[in-house]
């Protein structure tokens, strides 16, 4: 079995990332996103769901849920094995799960993730709407931390100083916030 070039690059970055290299982690997440987006949209299209969906399902929300899952379950990737099948399985699982929650049955297989034309976001990035709604359901401190790091581009250190917390406490709160967001995605009926 041969593996495509992007997959090998992702695997190399992911190995560094699992070793604590934040830059490599940012790179791999940014690199897989257009492919995950393409896969998600392809499946939506095949089921006849429009981009913004008559049911209000935005594929970008699913992309964000997949990225959260990739992050929280990254220890389940076996570093000895190619990363493509792992990523494809997570993508398939999350897309099917989302659609099932909304009453669709979907058995269309998802091919190798790297086997599609990637869909890049426009210059200002793509918005998910679910995440904003779910942020409202976090406690104030957790929401503040996620927004500070994500939307205002602050570091953990800067956020900690502003909130008068230790770096460690900010990291713990951030980790809990991400886990809560993943749970909220999963339990969201609509």
């Amino acid at each position: 079995m041969t593996h495509s070039e992007p997959e090998e690059q992702w695997a190399a970055w992911m190995r560094l990332a699992l070793d604590g290299d934040g830059d490599a982690y940012r790179r791999v997440l940014a690199a897989i996103t257009p492919y995950v987006r393409a896969q998600t949209r392809n499946r939506f299209k095949r089921l006849g769901i429009d981009r913004l969906g008559r049911d209000g399902v935005d594929p970008e929300d699913v992309v964000q849920e997949i990225l959260l899952a990739v992050h929280l379950k990254r220890h389940t990737w076996d570093m000895e094995r190619p990363i493509g099948p792992w990523l494809a399985a997570i993508t398939r699982h999350k897309v099917i799960d989302t659609l099932r929650r909304r009453g669709y049955r979907s058995d269309v297989p998802i091919e190798d993730v790297a086997n599609v034309l990637p869909v890049e976001a426009a210059e200002d990035g793509l918005d998910g709407r679910d995440l904003d709604r779910m942020l409202e359901r976090l406690n104030d401190r957790q929401r503040d931390i996620v927004q500070s790091i994500s939307m205002r581009g602050n570091s953990v250190r800067e956020t900690a100083e502003r909130l008068n917390m230790s770096d460690g406490a900010v990291r713990v709160a951030l980790h809990r916030a991400l886990k809560s967001l993943a749970l909220l995605f999963r339990s969201d009926p609509a």
Binding site: G20, Q64, G128, D132, S150, M151, R171
Partner: peptide, 17 residues
């Protein structure tokens, strides 16, 4: 929230397994 913004939070969360 934009997807790129979400990635920043994921990167900042170093709570490795």
């Amino acid at each position: 929230m934009k997807t790129d913004e979400l990635i920043e939070s994921l990167v900042a969360d170093e709570a490795a397994a």
